[in-house]
Design a protein around this nucleic acid. Structure first.
Length: 108
DNA sequence: AAAGTGACTGTTA
DNA sequence: TTAACAGCCACTT
């Protein structure tokens, strides 16, 4: 990324539109950017954000995978994301995943 | 310029 | 239902 990656910025701007209590999937963000195959790159963009999460803060915790699960390794941010979501009222089902039919952000 | 990496996904076994 | 594979994209050596 470095300084000004259009793609990264679009990902961040879009993520900032996800309201508290809702979540979006990597693929959903990618599709909204007219690049439905770039889900992996979306994750890459959010990963590059973690350390400082500078600028207008980006609610990265609201982006999960299409199965309704957190794509971070245990001990590598998984617990943090789960806690941040819980603070916003987003609670996982018994299987540990989030019910997308209930929490998925619909904007289109 | 080629090859490697990773917070993804859809398909195939 | 789970697991392995294979494309895909942006970014970094």
């Amino acid at each position: 990324m470095g300084d000004n990656s259009d793609f990264f910025h679009r990902v961040y701007d879009l993520a900032r539109r996800i309201p508290p209590g809702k979540v979006a999937t990597y693929g959903q963000i990618a599709a909204m950017l007219n690049a439905p195959q770039a889900a992996r790159a979306v994750g890459y963009a959010l990963h590059a954000l973690k350390p400082g999460n500078i600028d207008p803060p980006v609610p990265w915790q609201r982006v999960i995978n299409h199965r309704g699960g957190i794509s971070l390794p245990a001990g590598g941010g998984f617990e943090l994301q789960r806690a941040l979501l819980e603070d916003e009222g987003v609670i996982p089902s018994e299987d540990g995943n989030y019910d997308l039919s209930k929490y998925l952000w619909k904007d289109d």
